[in-house]
């Protein structure tokens, strides 16, 4: 019998010798911890909408059906939570923010992301563009579960995962930076895991 049979068939991790390293202070997890600052909103897709509003007061709206009709992408990305767990190779499906922003007329430099349930998070607008961010509605081949932010969440994996707002309902484009939920309570305004920007002053 061939020895290859002992290779773990379900193992999808990267080889430890050649894969990307963890950001400083992080540990690797294989499961997908659920973090939440409040009750899980149950948002029906027939009532769901996504709104981008500009500094001039213009609004761009998508219903669920309109979002589904847009071209989607299937990014596989590493994610890093500020509570120190990281997960490699998470597979998503969603619409790129480049697609959603393509017709939006704005001079804004900042974005404040709003969620169903009241959560907010802020980031520079440029971090949402150029293939860096998606409105994700499927994870690991299935519809995104409510505890992971379904029906749709922001996915912006190059920043700590608190920036990837669950239950996303809109993005407010702003000329001036405005801190979100955790950013106004001690967490770093930008949150780059590779520079370990966890708290204000890091």
């Amino acid at each position: 019998m061939a020895v290859v049979g002992i290779v773990t068939p379900g193992f999808r991790g990267r080889p430890r010798s050649s894969g990307p390293e963890l950001p400083p202070g992080q540990y690797l997890t294989e499961d997908f911890p659920v973090l939440s600052a409040g009750p899980t909103p149950r948002v029906l897709t027939d009532r769901w909408e996504f709104v981008i509003s500009t500094e001039a007061g213009q609004e761009y709206r998508w219903s669920w059906a309109e979002l589904m009709a847009l071209p989607s992408e299937t990014p596989t990305v590493d994610i890093h939570c500020v509570t120190k767990w990281s997960k490699f190779g998470t597979a998503w499906q969603g619409v790129s923010l480049d697609t959603l922003m393509s017709d939006v007329d704005t001079a804004a430099d900042f974005a404040l992301v709003h969620s169903y349930g009241g959560y907010t998070t802020n980031l520079p607008l440029e971090d949402l563009l150029n293939g860096q961010a998606w409105i994700a509605y499927r994870y690991d081949g299935a519809d995104l579960a409510p505890e992971h932010g379904g029906p749709a969440r922001l996915l912006v994996p190059h920043l700590y995962f608190w920036k990837s707002a669950k239950w996303v309902r809109g993005i407010q484009l702003l000329l001036d930076d405005e801190p979100g939920f955790w950013e106004s309570a001690g967490y770093h305004d930008y949150g780059d895991p590779w520079r370990e920007q966890r708290y204000q002053g890091d």
Binding site: V34, G38, G186, Y187
Partner: peptide, 11 residues
Amino acid sequence: VYDHAPGLVAR
């Protein structure tokens, strides 16, 4: 108190 979070959130 939601404590599975980056901080303690008391609602």
